[in-house]
Design a protein around this nucleic acid. Structure first.
Lengths: 245, 245
DNA sequence: CGGTGCATTGATCAGAATCAATGATCGTGG
DNA sequence: CCACGATCATTGATTCTGATCAATGCACCG
């Protein structure tokens, strides 16, 4: 990476030469995984690296959807607000995730950095043009959208039909799976987001999240480590709880 | 891209079973709307018309995803079950809707006919082959997936953060919008599905749905007509309620 | 240190679930 | 054609999970 300023943000890197996609650490995780060297060049040509500090807005619901993003580091929360301030977090994105599949004229949701975030930003119009050239890429996007839809349905089951305990355990398992996918361990699980983020993701309040947390600790179902990490001692038990048996 | 234009078109077709795609009443609503005569032929070659009676299963979660469907008449419910029988309905599909965008090896959810349903069924493998030939079609699918994702996010807000009253009013508005899209009136809204279906879609119980229904009737917010139709006398008021102002 | 923001814990409340009964609708067969 | 049973919808009484209101604890930071 080129010189990076960690204090001021967002910071744009207008020079893609300095961050060649070929060496990108999340390339295989991301939509770029299907591209060969030539196509990568084309992607690189329309990409900008950017950074965000915790709580920085990345996109705003309702604004023209001019940019799309590949998350290369950190965690992003997607959310929608009701007029009175009630918030629903619809997902957390991490390494390799693509932000902006729902390509309408305007963004359908907002996104903020949870911790220090790096992204690869594309001008939407340019990426769309590239799609016509690279059918692989379009197929990949369709695959991603398909996965996201499946996830969204699981989340609907969680929100509509699971208890607080089931919700929280499902959440840990989701994080654990995701962590494995990006090449980490299944446990312990990192929790970069606040209790209030977790609550708004699970359709609960912070108090209920906190209480359920404590109750799971008491019953040894989970273990809270230094730095807010959570150890999952027995995946089978957790799976059973999450599915509500 | 991808703001899908649902053209108005008549929805009654005397005999879809015998009809070639060219005369298909939901063609413009469906993925087939982007195809010219030649391409339609190719679609027709891999399509089968089928019908289902109320409560008939159409696909089963976990089964190999061998078929994809275009709904040409009637209403379909998509749902997922927890092991103890709790059910979450993740969506209702009607004329022109495409069933099976989430293209994994196995179906991620089940689908049943709510009323009398007709579909155009495709062998998945064949449709996938056709996709490589018809880039228009692939784009259209991506657009559909994009729309579905946006809808799914709205549904998460509903399930996670709205009250029973807000949920029910949002549901009526969704049906009303959908009815307009397929060429009908905004009101009255048809309710082919049972209270229990509505409950499982909104993350409520039948009793709560019924009570909320009654309360909305009492306050003149809605009016219940013959045949279970619901008249929406004032859209602005309903929108306000649905968004929780 | 003291302040600020986040997390935890406690007490109470409320909205929706559950348990239970009654009412309406519809299809079937006598 | 009506009576019966079955299914679904409505309404009522009560319970309970999670929300709300409130206080305290804890960690980080100037």
């Amino acid at each position: 990476m080129a010189v990076i300023n960690f204090n001021r943000s967002p910071v744009s890197n207008p020079d893609p030469i300095m961050s060649p996609c070929a060496a990108c650490s999340v390339r295989d995780l991301s939509i770029c995984g299907v591209l060969d060297e030539t196509d990568l060049q084309k992607m690189a040509a329309i990409a900008h690296n950017m950074q965000y500090s915790p709580q920085d807005p990345i996109i705003d619901e309702g604004e023209p959807a001019d940019f799309l993003f590949n998350i290369t580091a950190g965690t992003v929360r997607l959310y929608k607000l009701l007029p009175d301030g009630r918030r629903q977090i619809t997902g957390f994105l991490t390494n390799g995730d693509f932000l902006g599949i729902a390509l309408n004229e305007n963004y359908a949701y907002s996104a903020e950095a949870v911790d220090d975030v790096r992204v690869c930003r594309f001008v939407r119009r340019k990426l769309e043009n590239l799609l016509d050239e690279l059918p692989h890429l379009e197929k990949r996007l369709l695959g991603l959208a398909s996965n996201e839809l499946a996830q969204a349905q699981d989340q609907m089951v969680l929100l509509g039909r699971k208890t607080a305990k089931e919700k929280l355990v499902s959440f840990f398992l989701m994080l654990s799976r995701r962590q494995k996918e990006i090449g980490g361990e299944a446990s312990p699980v990192m929790l970069p987001m606040s209790r209030s983020d977790i609550a708004d993701y699970l359709g609960l309040t912070t108090e209920t999240v906190s209480r359920t947390f404590s109750s799971l600790k008491r019953s040894q179902t989970i273990k809270l480590e230094e730095g807010g990490k959570v150890t999952l001692p027995n995946m089978e038990v957790l799976e059973t709880i999450a599915e509500g048996y």
